[in-house]
Design a binder for these strands. Structure first.
Lengths: 161, 161
DNA sequence: CTAAATGCGGATAATCATTATCCACGTTGT
DNA sequence: ACAACGTGGATAATGATTATCCGCATTTAG
């Protein structure tokens, strides 16, 4: 098993966080988001589009286009972001070693599946408890107001509509 | 984040399971283990050596050599196998996006670290509860005795010492 | 109506961790 | 001495993730 925050999910979370600073109806272009967070602009576009497909973000095409939140920060769970980026693929799939070892016919027997399901659900429950709004609170607690205001200023400068 | 049973860990668990069928002092060679489970023999050797380094298995070099358990099935947690193969690397490490976004100086501030630590520990607690002995019980419940006896017969045929 | 800015989607390359192979060596038993 | 086996290192092959490119559709500005 492996528990790892892939940069795709992490970047997405921060991109959404950035969009929470936007006033109603305003949008931020993909380029602005990626330059603000640093990282590959084109890959960022891919991530943003996945978030749009998952209905977490809304996108506005055309000149003066960009992205904004489609749900409130309270409605967006970290889990939702994870699923949007990584897909809801069942996290554990037996490689069939068990069957080979015992020469089993019954494909439904898997020794580790129970364990993995338990691990999976305990892990999901944690990601489902935390929302973007929760993280925003954390930011307000952990960050110097100065830096936060600078970020907000940048967002307001770069936003359109 | 990503929760996935890599084949290395899975194979290791099953290899250990196989070794539980050995009588005291007997060993099974790496080749026998890998042909029994199917999979790359050379990679299996790598895995087995990691398990030896982690003190889960003992190895006997030379002709008539091989591997056997160094601990009882009750003492080997799935978590131990995981750590032996994957290492105890802290599972989440911030990529620094947060700092870039907010222009922070303090390297200790990370928004997602708390969340990830919580997920990590909840996940570990589950892997620490389950031992090889637990899985052996599962096998006895889930598997036809016939297949199990065939496997045991094979092991006794191939073991040495 | 044209042009520029932007999101969209597909094809494709680069990167990185995992998995797999090979080889020279040390040890043990025959 | 020889054969069987584990050890350790160097090095490929594989596969998933990340990154780039390009042509197209849509909207705003002039």
């Amino acid at each position: 098993m492996f528990l790892h925050m892939k940069t795709g999910v992490e970047q997405s979370v921060y991109a959404i966080l950035l969009l929470t600073f936007l006033p109603e109806k305003a949008v931020l272009s993909g380029d602005v988001i990626s330059t603000q967070l640093g990282g590959s602009p084109t890959y960022f576009q891919k991530l943003l589009r996945k978030l749009v497909s998952a209905d977490l973000l809304a996108s506005v095409p055309g000149s003066k286009g960009g992205f904004r939140l489609k749900k409130t920060p309270e409605e967006i769970r970290i889990y939702d972001v994870y699923v949007a980026i990584e897909g809801k693929q069942s996290l554990y799939s037996s490689s069939g070693i068990f069957h080979d070892m015992l020469n089993l016919k019954d494909k439904d027997i898997c020794l580790l599946s129970d364990l993995m399901e338990e691990a999976e659900s305990s892990w999901q429950s944690i990601l489902k408890r935390q929302t973007i709004a929760t993280l925003t609170n954390e930011i307000n607690k952990k960050c110097p107001k100065e830096n936060l205001n600078m970020l907000k200023a940048t967002v307001e400068e770069k936003m359109v509509l």
